[in-house]
Design a binder for these strands. Structure first.
Lengths: 230, 230
DNA sequence: GAAATAGTGTCTGTAAGACATTATAAG
DNA sequence: CTTATAATGTCTTACAGACACTATTTC
């Protein structure tokens, strides 16, 4: 960084790829734009970085504003930054995108600056039809791919589950996010024998019918050894 | 993004974690700052994003300015962004960090705005002693961790090698970056049997002494299946 | 009882870790 | 010859995929 150089003003925003598993589908939170450009189009939630705010704080604030929920109910991590000169026709912007993963949530309330807020299946958002505003389709695609690959190497699938969950519910997350079918028996053996992934609570539940299923909490490890490959 | 909101001006910079393997060590490119703040201290190379420049272009430009080499000799990918409000005492800045991986290069020439440029072992830069300016130690640590983990799942180790290399040279990269010792025979079997990792050129070399070693180019796959775990 | 889901066991092929052996060069 | 490095092969163990079977609930 050279003090002598020009440093043209750039607007910095934070955009969110908020993902959840609802109705057997991977869904993302979208907001409908009220004003030009892209008025009426769906977009990812986000907003400007405030003067004395660090990036993770801005992401958590936006998440709270859009969902009304405290950010400790989400797994929040930085995705990537996007800064093509023409990505916003109004001005030069660089956006720092975050991904937020959550268990199935109540239907979001519209934020102050959005006409409407809605969960929509990722598959529909990434097809040509319902094209997202700005470069948000590319950001969403990157966020989904990040989530998919993180399920392989980390216990992050649990972020899509309530705090206590069954092996079956966890498998369901993998199946929906990866779009695959997994063998329930091999999956059960795999996750219960991976040290630090699951901690049994001692309780059981019959919410899925059939024999009572043991409930687990997510363990403490950050990485799965060995990974659970697609 | 809400047009009505304030969007305070922020300076956006691009910083580089340029890594190579030299003298049996993982080393990073550093520049010595000529002016306050942190005058005389070592820092990561970087600079301001220009008005009509996309982020990858800015990273490639800075890389060229600092090394004098065209950016196609590097593997360049975005690392993460950093924007703590006090990370630069002069003004509010957000930096988008990139990592660049390269084969052993000539000693760099000092850029226009740096008093000196030098390769330094990552291990020394991350010890308390030779503390980097700004938050660059944290950025470097993140970049090194990214490189380490990418060696597991991608053929990226080849980015530290010349365009044609031997299995032995490739193993050497893994050993230096991971700080481990690998069994040469098992490593050879592993990488030569992983489909798409290595393409034999048909040539051999005796530059490491002993029996001639076959030369390879890196293959076309983006991911290693199965991965090469640490 | 039937039906549904949970959980365990068994077999088989693949691959990793440990390590012996052979191959081809230089001095 | 010795020495160095390259490359292949063998043995054992661990684990993933396929799939049979048992366990515990609801209706």
């Amino acid at each position: 960084m050279a003090p002598g150089d020009a440093h043209p003003s750039v607007a910095v925003t934070v955009d969110l790829v908020v993902l959840t598993v609802r109705s057997e589908q991977l869904q993302a939170l979208t907001v409908q734009r009220g004003e030009a450009p892209y008025a009426g189009r769906w977009a990812l939630p986000g907003g400007f970085l405030q003067p004395d705010e660090d990036l993770p704080d801005a992401a958590a604030r936006e998440l709270h504003e859009e969902t009304g929920l405290s950010s400790d109910r989400f797994h929040l991590e930085q995705l990537a930054s996007y800064g093509a000169p023409d990505r916003d026709p109004r001005m030069r912007t660089v956006t720092v995108a975050y991904i937020a993963l959550a268990a199935d949530l109540p239907v979001p309330t519209a934020g102050t600056d959005a006409a409407d807020a809605r969960w929509q299946p990722v598959s529909e958002l990434l097809e040509g039809d319902r094209e997202l505003a700005f470069d948000h389709a590319a950001i969403l695609a990157d966020g989904v791919e990040r989530a998919r690959s993180k399920l392989e190497y980390t216990p992050l699938a649990a972020a899509f589950c309530p705090s206590e969950f069954t092996v079956s519910e966890l498998r369901h997350v993998y199946e929906v996010v990866w779009g695959t079918v997994l063998d329930p028996r091999n999956f059960h053996r795999k996750v219960t024998r991976t040290e630090g992934f699951l901690e049994p609570t001692g309780d059981t539940t019959t919410r899925e019918g059939g024999r009572p299923a043991r409930l687990y909490r997510v363990g403490t490890v950050a990485q799965l050894h060995p990974p659970l490959l697609r």
